[in-house]
């Protein structure tokens, strides 16, 4: 069965999380091979995750870490 763009759109969340069945994956791959728009959209969505995985995590500032550790020591 050939997927339409909206069919693929519905599968994108599972596609991005690697949760498609082998059949669905094959169908999605078939559609992506011929649809530049969906390929671009998929690539951008993957880019969002990559961007936030690389830049979205924060480090607790050292001064806060020390202050909190001291407060936790009082709890012990």
């Amino acid at each position: 069965m050939t997927l339409s763009c909206s069919d693929l759109d519905a599968l994108l969340p599972e596609f991005l999380d690697g949760e498609l069945t082998p059949d669905q994956e094959a169908q999605a791959g078939e559609h992506l091979a011929t649809c530049a728009q969906c390929t671009l959209e998929l690539s951008e969505l993957q880019g969002v995750t990559r961007l936030y995985r690389e830049h979205g995590a924060l480090k607790l500032p050292d001064d806060a870490r020390k202050r909190i550790a001291a407060a936790l020591d009082i709890e012990l």
């Binding site: 991005l16 951008e44 880019g47 969002v48 961007l51 936030y52």
Partner: peptide
């Protein structure tokens, strides 16, 4: 997740 990724995709398009 779908809502977040789509909204962020639109806003950050130039970085993607």
């Amino acid at each position: 997740l779908a809502r977040a990724r789509e909204a962020l995709r639109v806003q950050l398009k130039e970085y993607l």
